[in-house]
Design a protein around this nucleic acid. Structure first.
Ligand SMILES: Nc1ccn([C@H]2C[C@H](O)[C@@H](COP(=O)(O)OP(=O)(O)OP(=O)(O)O)O2)c(=O)n1
Ligand code: SF4
Length: 1033
DNA sequence: TAATGGTAGGGGAGGAAAAATTGTTCTTAC
DNA sequence: TAATGGTAAGAACAATTATTCCTCCCCTAC
């Protein structure tokens, strides 16, 4: 008995010439719901979004979710109160404690928002102090704000009772996470509310189909295992907006209208194609097969109807590309500008709560620094695919175009915003064109999400680490560790001290990188490495907060070295498992189990793309595990403990050294082996061994034997693995090498390159492709001469300007706001900001630039320029820079080890002679006009020819050849024309229509650069032909 | 315009150019 | 304000410093 919300809505009226009749409406809403009987029916749902009511309300939690049948749920969870612990002052006996408690109660009663104070038996997480429980005061607050106030003002409020500063415990965890930890709720898990335990709300505050109240302790939270690892049929809305900006200015919501909003809705786990595809368009728009076009005369109506649409579709997940920083804020601001915010802003599931745009800032070493916006849509998850890409994939460019090219294998046209305005102001056909473009942009994020399995993988991460889904994109690694730590700690009555950590400038000592024996190795090099080194060290040696010891405690408890505790190579002490098993090792076991599961899936999968996705999933879990170690070393973190992190690295240093020694000692002639093995390199947890044999099989056999042999020296679960052989192997420097990667003797797997230009993003494509090709020729084809030849050919092409510009674009991240020195990408970003602030790169973005010709001593930062700008203004490229500053050194580095000083010949010689290069004119020469030359013999045409109004094609001497010359140029021009037409058609195909103009100006598409160049070539050729026409025959 | 000693070479000052060093930044390998 | 996993390391540039080289000038020997 489904009733469209649209039909009931009094706001809905016929707005356009094509009336928006409810009867025509497909059913956008959720499946109908049979009435529930709260005394008989239980409610089971997958919780997707959790939020608290805020610091100023009565504390409560809202859990939003979806049932297996696809009904939306909102659970108001009540009676869960925030709290923290404080340690009892030293030396208190029972009576002291009770009197302290009573005094405190006395002071707090009726004030301070304190709900209750209890004495509880707990133990501090920090340090091993025997197994006795200790008394703590648990102070429960009536609301969040009171907790914060008392915590921060403890000293002045209670200085009579507590003259000494006190240590609080668990006072710095957010209310939501506190609730999740206590009730064992993890992100995206299933919740079961038994019959009789909930009360349906008669007056709903939300648009959810099922809305009820439940006490915090009256529901069951299912661990995401077995049956409960399923997913509910989440409804996913993907959308994209288009705005009509003014020429050369990025659209501004105060001025420029929203003209189209395209939407795709799919069901998670259902059919892959969207079951709703539509576009809300301003002004009329021709029909589009397979999509619904909703036209509006007024922008106000468009916005409001779109909001109604969102309400009816009621998506659980809202996705798009850059929706967090562009689409959503733009819509919100636009609604304000049009004064319809009172009707528009209700995009979440709560009826009376407006969505608000907040500025946020994120800063971490791994993800960089970034300013962004956040628009909370209560009850709806957001997954901005741009943010996903930026976090999970290292790409040269993160434009939708570049990302699609990378993952979907197709280009996406990019229409400049001023062209969008033209299309909008054109006909209903041109608006249709725009709508198709917009629909595509709404569909692509959907496809990306499916293909990269974002939802599934993030859900797994949320479940493994316990954090809410939305933390995964908005927060860092720390919160995951904290979530796990609290869960494990509280299970065993540990409580976590709230530390106020000050950061330190000094770094502690990390891992060893073995000094490489640089060179080219035409023999197999076996690689042994420890699996999950740091986690396994922490597990093996039981490193944890709860096992940390100091000398005095050892003496007091009369602990025995090696039996009860160990001294780490960093001279810290930790209790052994004989005494107590640490929490961190337990957390790590869980993470590593999850990783093993992912690796097993990876092993089964054959499809290379899916393998890559699974590999990403596996890697993400590995990073989470390594972040447990990182967390203990984060001095600006919630619970730094350098004893743990430094000891871990110290063990690691010891182990790599020991491994090297063991392998070299065991596999030596002295020890009866055929050759002396040599460790030629190693980094942190790996050793590259030259066993001395020349064949793969032996190397592999020795490798796996050695791995097992060395593993025997270490404690469980430390394990040295033999994984691969490099053959041949090119070792350039620390953290820089390449090799052919073999895991089986029959056939190599791939070419592997580490650290060198092919895997770096801060050089131009030309460099990485040239290096890649040369390495391919050297390592796979074993043809160094061919590699040289190829390199020389490329250099010649570069100097002749035959390399197309897309190959020369360099990108670098804009990683901070204030730079100490001047840099090419920073200076360009500043210049672009002057041209058009809206479209200029922002903090965290990657700046694309090319180096253009300048005068002699110009610094690189004076010669960097926006590729599009270069193309439009026909600025010459500094090819010399590309040869000398981009290509030459990397080339020398890879050729040197193979052919020694002969490599220098690469950069000198015939091919480096420039054929014809327009040197930039300086000074007075700037104004000197180039004389036209004869098309036959290139002599300058001057004298009497110059006086003619039109330039003749040839000089007097070549006049007889005029006919054949003309033919030649005709042929040339038509060849160019054909080349251009081919590119043009390719672009038409890309944009999905062979009958329309190509409008695309995609910075990230090589075709675009080639098309532009071809266009220019044709124009030039035609200009020359023109000269024949004006010549007297 | 008029009047004038020339050449070689050491050595220091000053400045330019090239080289080395340092510091910053980006990005990657673990 | 709150919040931000870790260290090691290569490489490119810009900026700085130290070094070399060159020129000019002064002076002297012959
Ligand atoms: N992002 C990372 C990567 C690595 N490491 C540290 C901890 C790792 O244990 C060690 C070795 O790194 P590997 O890349 O070899 O990864 P693992 O040894 O952890 O995993 P495996 O070798 O099983 O893939 O370096 C780290 O702290 N953070
Ligand atoms: S340049 Fe052509 S091929 Fe490339 S994205 Fe644009 S339209 Fe597509």
């Amino acid at each position: 008995m489904h009733v469209s919300l649209f039909k009931n809505s009094p706001r809905i009226q016929a707005l356009t010439s094509r009336p928006f009749l409810a009867i025509e409406q497909p059913r956008w809403g959720r499946p109908p719901l049979a009435p529930l009987d709260s005394s008989k029916d239980k409610i089971v749902f997958q919780q997707v979004d959790i939020e608290d009511t805020g610091a100023y309300e009565k504390p409560a939690i809202r859990m939003y979710g979806v049932t297996q049948e696809g009904h939306s749920v909102l659970a108001h969870v009540s009676d869960f109160l925030p709290y923290f612990y404080i340690a009892m002052p030293r030396g208190f006996v029972d009576e002291d404690r009770e009197s302290l408690r009573l005094k405190l109660i006395d002071m707090c009663e009726g004030r301070h928002g304190v709900h209750s104070i209890k004495v509880v038996k707990k133990r501090s997480l920090w340090g091993y102090k025997g197994d006795d429980m200790v008394m703590f005061l648990k102070i429960v607050f009536a609301d969040q704000r009171s907790l914060t106030r008392i915590r921060d003002k403890w000293e002045c409020e209670f200085k009579d009772l507590f003259p000494e500063p006190i240590q609080t415990y668990e006072s710095n965890i957010s209310y939501t996470l506190r609730f999740m930890v206590d009730r064992k709720v993890t992100g995206m898990n299933w919740i079961e509310v038994p019959a009789g335990k909930y009360a349906l709300r008669s007056r709903q505050s939300s648009n959810c189909q099922i809305e009820f109240d439940v006490r915090y302790d009256a529901f069951i939270s299912h661990e995401p295992e077995g049956e409960w690892s399923k997913m509910a049929p989440l409804r996913i809305l993907s959308f994209d907006i288009e705005c009509a900006g003014r020429k050369g200015i990025f659209p501004e919501p105060q001025i420029d209208p929203v003209i189209q909003i395209a939407n795709m809705v799919t069901r998670q786990g259902g059919e892959s194609a969207p079951f709703i595809r539509n576009v809300f368009a301003l002004n009329d728009c021709a029909d589009i097969v397979g999509s619904q076009v909703l036209s509006f005369k007024k922008e106000n109506d468009l916005l409001i109807r779109w909001r109604d649409f969102v309400e009816e579709v009621d998506p659980d997940v809202v996705i798009g590309y850059n929706i967090a920083n562009f689409d959503l804020p733009y819509l919100m601001d636009r609604a304000v500008a049009l004064k319809v915010q009172d009707r528009f802003a209700f995009l979440g599931r709560l009826k009376n709560v407006r969505a608000k745009v907040k500025d946020t800032h994120f800063n971490s070493k791994a993800y960089g620094q970034r300013n962004s916006k956040e628009t909370v849509l209560d009850g709806r998850l957001q997954l901005d695919l741009l943010q996903v890409m930026q976090r999970d994939y290292k790409l040269r460019s993160y434009s939708l175009n570049a990302v699609c090219a990378e993952f979907l294998g197709e280009q996406k046209e990019d229409v400049h915003h001023s062209v969008i305005t033209e299309l909008q102001n054109g006909t209903r056909e041109s608006r249709r064109r725009l709508a198709i473009y917009c629909l595509k942009d709404a569909y692509l994020p959907q496809r990306l999400m499916d293909k990269l399995m974002c939802l599934v993988n993030y859900t797994e991460m949320a479940r493994v680490t316990g954090v809410p889904f939305n933390y995964l994109l908005s927060k860092g690694q720390q919160i995951k560790v904290i979530s796990q730590l609290f869960r494990k700690a509280n299970e065993q009555d540990y409580i976590v001290p709230a530390m106020h950590s000050e950061g330190s400038d000094e770094q502690y000592e990390g891992a060893t990188v073995i000094e490489p024996k640089r060179g080219y190795y035409p023999m197999p090099i076996a690689t042994l490495d420890f699996s999950s080194l740091y986690p396994s060290i922490m597990m093996a040696h039981n490193l944890c907060y709860t096992t940390l010891l100091d000398k005095t405690m050892i003496d007091r408890l009369k602990l025995v070295e090696q039996v009860d505790y160990v001294r780490t190579p960093n001279n810290d002490f930790f209790a052994t498992t004989n005494r107590r098993k640490g929490l961190l090792p337990t957390i790590l076991e869980d993470l590593i189990t999850a990783r093993k599961r992912a690796k097993a899936d990876l092993k089964k999968e054959k499809d290379p793309f899916k393998r890559a996705v699974l590999d990403g999933r596996q890697l993400a879990l590995k990073i989470s595990a390594n972040s447990v170690y990182g967390f203990t070393g984060a001095t600006i973190g919630k619970l730094p403990c350098l004893a743990i992190s430094s000891s871990t690295t110290a063990y690691g240093r010891q182990m790599i050294e020991a491994t090297k020694e063991a392998v070299e000692a065991e596999y030596s002639i002295k020890n009866g082996r055929e050759h002396d093995a040599e460790v030629i390199y190693g980094d942190t947890d790996s050793v590259m061994v030259k066993f001395g044999c020349s064949d793969l099989e032996t190397a592999m056999a020795l490798g796996s034997e050695a791995a097992a042999f060395v593993t025997g020296f270490f404690k469980q679960p430390i394990k040295l693995e033999f994984e691969k052989v490099y053959f041949p192997y090119l070792l350039i420097n620390k953290k820089r090498y390449a090799g052919l990667y073999w895991t089986k003797a029959e056939k190599w797997d791939k070419m592997d390159t580490k650290g060198i230009e092919t895997v770096r993003r801060d050089n131009c494509r030309l460099v990485s492709t040239v290096i890649e090709t040369c390495l391919h020729k050297m390592l796979i084809d074993r043809n160094a001469e061919g590699a040289i030849e190829y390199a020389q050919r490329t250099i010649a092409q570069l100097l002749q300007g035959k390399i197309d510009m897309s190959q020369l674009v360099i990108t670098k991240a804009l990683s901070k706001e204030d730079y100490a020195g001047k840099q090419a990408h920073v200076e360009l970003a500043a210049r672009m900001k002057e041209r058009d602030a809206g479209s200029a790169p922002a903090l965290g973005d990657r700046v694309a630039y090319v180096i253009v010709q300048g005068s002699k001593d110009d610094k690189a930062y004076e010669k960097s320029e926006d590729p599009i700008y270069v193309l439009e203004n026909n600025i010459p490229i500094d090819t010399k820079y590309y040869l000398e500053n981009q290509l030459s050194k990397p080339l020398l580095r890879i050729f040197e080890p193979v052919m020694g000083s002969r490599a220098n010949s690469l950069l000198a010689g015939e091919h480096t002679r420039t054929i014809k290069k327009d040197t930039p004119k300086t000074g007075l020469m700037k104004f000197a006009k180039k004389l036209p030359t004869c098309l036959g013999c290139k002599t300058e045409l001057r004298g009497k020819w110059q006086s003619k109004p039109n330039i003749s094609a040839v000089c007097i001497n070549c006049k007889p050849k005029l006919g054949s010359l003309y033919q030649e140029h005709i042929n040339n021009a038509s060849a160019l024309q054909v080349a251009f037409a081919r590119l043009w058609t390719q672009c038409q195909r890309c944009q999905g229509s062979l009958h329309q103009d190509v409008l695309c100006t995609s910075k990230d598409c090589p075709i675009f650069y080639r098309r532009k160049k071809a266009q220019k070539d044709v124009a030039e050729a035609n200009l020359i032909l023109e000269r024949f026409n004006t010549t007297d025959w």
